[in-house]
Simulated assay, not measured.
Amino acid sequence: MQADHSDQTTPWGLVLALWGAGLGAAAQYGKFSAIFDQLPQIYPGAGAALGLIVSIVGLLGIFLGVVAGVMVARIRYRRALLWALWVGAALSLFQALLPPLPWMLLSRALEGLSHLAIVVATPTLIAQICAPKDRGFALTLWGTFFGVAFTILAWLGLPLVTLAGIPALLAAHGLYMAGFALLLSQRLRALRIEAPATTLSVPQVLRNHVEIYRSPYISAPAIGWLFYTFCFVSILTVLPVYIAPESRAFVMGAMPLISIASSMTLGVALLRIISAVHVILIGFAGSVAATCWLWLAPGLPVACLALAATMGLIQGASFAAVPQLNTTAATQARANGAIAQTGNIGNTLGTPIMAITTGSLGYAGLPLLAGAAFALGAIAHLTLARKRQQA
């Protein structure tokens, strides 16, 4: 991408608009999670198939994350983002009709492709339009999109469902996506993007995977993200039963918000003086310490909030690391595609493995498994940093 940063100013209005598009992408994932307990009323007798309504979006990300990074670069970032927003809007409006389950599942699979295109194209665009001094803050802001979207769904989406039903939530999401497609089609028109010539075939896709994960530059944010996502959702899912009932609701509601606040305050401040990888390492080390605290003090609310704060450092800095380690839009898109892939792997595997571990070992299994995963994330980053030094 070619952008003129000679004046070293960042178009913050456009950055916020792109972040807003990211909230819509996160809601593609979260809108059915928020109403999952109500789905049996719509599809009685569907049984385990209802889980696919939520998970099929993430499953596609496991297999197609890297492909999305290549395709977004090939069809150009602005075009990919706008296409994904319009398709996402149409699919959400279709879902508002509550079609038969097979059609709903097909729409969710297609929505997974829309989701991937947005989460690959948008941070790539943000990194390119920002002045270098502002990239850390802007990409840390981008890193909050999932937590903020899930909070909005809880605070506004569920009351809307109570008031007007599930179709109202799905239709509102469709209109939101369409609104941002219209807004960004105007705001992004002036950008001139140069995309590399790429081919898409099975051998080329396999080569792309090898190239990405052999590169200590492209793969590093995604490798760390794997261990972060393995822990984040699984901890939020398994931990509540170990917190005292009188504190449980407050702690579980506060943890995502503390994580976001930590990312946007301490994380941004650290990014101004040290590299994103070093911030990630501080986050992993702090998370290991917090899990040790939780091991010694099971379910202690302040220890839970401390863990959320340290995880927030990993969250924001992981996206900030992409442009620090990769200087071209094409390699940034590949890195963001890899983040989408490893993030979906972590989200998919984390909760069942955590549930099995705590089922076997009891509460101690949670801090042991989470602490080990955080330690492995730090070790992986240190290993990749050493490879970059050797290169």
Rank of each mutant, 00 (worst) to 15 (best):
D4C: 04
H5P: 01
T9A: 12
P11L: 06
A17G: 13
W19H: 13
A27I: 10
A27C: 14
Q28W: 01
Y29P: 01
A34N: 06
A48D: 14
A48F: 10
L50Y: 07
V57L: 13
L64Y: 03
V72H: 01
I75D: 05
R76F: 00
G88V: 09
Q95L: 15
P99M: 06
L101M: 10
M104Y: 08
L106H: 06
S107E: 05
S114V: 00
H115R: 00
I118Y: 02
A121L: 08
A121C: 10
T122L: 14
P123R: 03
L125S: 05
L139I: 10
T140L: 08
T144H: 11
F146T: 11
G147T: 00
T151D: 02
I152N: 01
W155V: 10
G165M: 03
L169W: 09
L169P: 14
A171I: 06
A171N: 03
L175D: 06
A178H: 01
L184H: 10
L188Q: 12
T198H: 13
L200E: 03
L206M: 15
R207E: 13
I212K: 03
A222V: 06
L226D: 05
I235E: 00
L239D: 03
I243K: 02
A244Q: 15
E246H: 11
E246N: 10
A249K: 12
F250K: 10
M255L: 06
A261W: 09
S262G: 15
I274R: 14
S275G: 11
I282E: 01
F284L: 01
F284Q: 08
S287K: 10
W293E: 09
W293D: 02
W295M: 12
W295V: 00
W295N: 01
P298H: 05
G299R: 06
P301R: 11
L305S: 02
G312N: 08
L313W: 06
I314T: 14
Q315W: 04
F319D: 01
F319I: 03
F319V: 07
L325Y: 02
A335Y: 10
I339W: 05
I345F: 07
N347L: 14
L349D: 06
G350A: 06
S360D: 08
Y363I: 02
A364D: 12
P367Y: 08
L369M: 13
L369C: 02
A372R: 01
I379M: 08
R388W: 06
